[in-house]
Amino acid sequence: MKNSLRWASLSVATAMVFALPALAAETAQDFVTKAAIGGMFEVQSSKVAQDKLQDQSLKDFAQKMISDHGAANAKLESIAGEQKLQVPSDLDSPHKADVDKLQSAAAPVDASYAKMQKAAHDDAVSLFEGYAKDGDNAALKSFAADTLPTLKMHQEMIEKVAASASASDSTTPAVTNTDATDPAAPVPGANSFTEDQAKSAIEKAGYADVSALTKDDKGIWRGTASKDGKSTPIALDYQGNVVAGAN
């Protein structure tokens, strides 16, 4: 009886050991679903962001995403069809939320787009590397291995431009107008500066202790700041002009 129990326990333990890799491995359908959603996100987010980007290297990157991932998506769909696997027709909720953020955000969106692309390509490289090594479908393993070098190239590209794009997104004026620099009063107009961008622009103009910033109905950021030890009302218009003493 004791021997029977020992053999039974050993059998259960052995079964658990051999079951673990199967639980951890990506299935063909899992891979298709994740790869397709990732590819769709690259294309959709890049199309939405393209006209809101200021950095030319990011604009070029976005166009490359549309082209490269569009082609990869079509190839994946073809292979999945041959393997009788389902390809999702739309993004999942987290990816859709990111696209919606880009859609609703005011330009420029360089830093946000670069951050999303960096995270997306980190995920994609990890997914494709794993499936190329341990995947359960020969055709999809080959696709993953063939696509991986392009994904790694994209990953390196976005790493190089992300830092400069972040700096651009936080300091570049929403609109540059050389015909109306340093006006006596802030110029009304649609203002795409965030509060942090407005504060940074005012500080670059030589002011400190910038506080109480709010954007009025004319698109002008207003608050208080100090210069030469004196506090003064301060304003920043959509062109990037900083005007002290403005009411």
Rank of each mutant, 00 (worst) to 15 (best):
D60A: 03
K64C: 11
L102N: 12
D90W: 13
S46C: 07
L102W: 11
H95K: 15
D90Q: 14
E82T: 05
V43L: 10
D51N: 11
D92V: 11
H95L: 15
K52C: 01
G39V: 06
S67N: 14
P88T: 09
K75R: 13
K75C: 01
F61H: 06
G39E: 06
K47Q: 08
Q56C: 04
A97G: 06
V48D: 01
D90C: 09
K47M: 12
S89N: 13
A36W: 01
S46R: 07
D51H: 07
Q50Y: 13
A49Y: 06
M40C: 02
F41L: 01
P94E: 14
L85N: 01
A36M: 08
M65G: 02
S89Q: 15
F61K: 00
S93K: 15
D98G: 12
M40R: 10
V87Y: 05
S67F: 15
Q50W: 12
D60M: 00
Q56R: 03
H95P: 09
M65K: 03
G81W: 03
P94A: 14
G38K: 00
V87T: 08
Q83F: 10
A71P: 04
L76Q: 02
H69C: 02
A72K: 08
Q54H: 07
H69P: 00
D51P: 13
A80L: 02
K59T: 01
G70W: 00
F61G: 06
F61A: 00
A80G: 03
S57Q: 06
S57L: 08
S93H: 14
L58A: 02
D68V: 12
L58H: 04
Q50I: 01
G39W: 04
K59P: 03
A72H: 01
K52R: 00
Q54A: 14
Q103L: 15
K64R: 11
K47E: 10
M65R: 09
D68E: 13
L91Y: 09
K47H: 03
I66D: 12
K59R: 05
K75D: 03
V48F: 10
K52F: 06
S78H: 11
D60W: 00
S57W: 05
S46T: 11
D55F: 06
M65E: 01
L76T: 07
S57T: 09
D55N: 09
F41K: 05
A97K: 14
F41S: 08
H69T: 11
D60L: 03
L76V: 08
S89Y: 12
P88V: 10
D68I: 10
N73A: 10
F61E: 04
K101R: 15
F61N: 04
K59G: 10
H69Q: 11
S57G: 02
S57M: 05
V48C: 05
G38C: 02
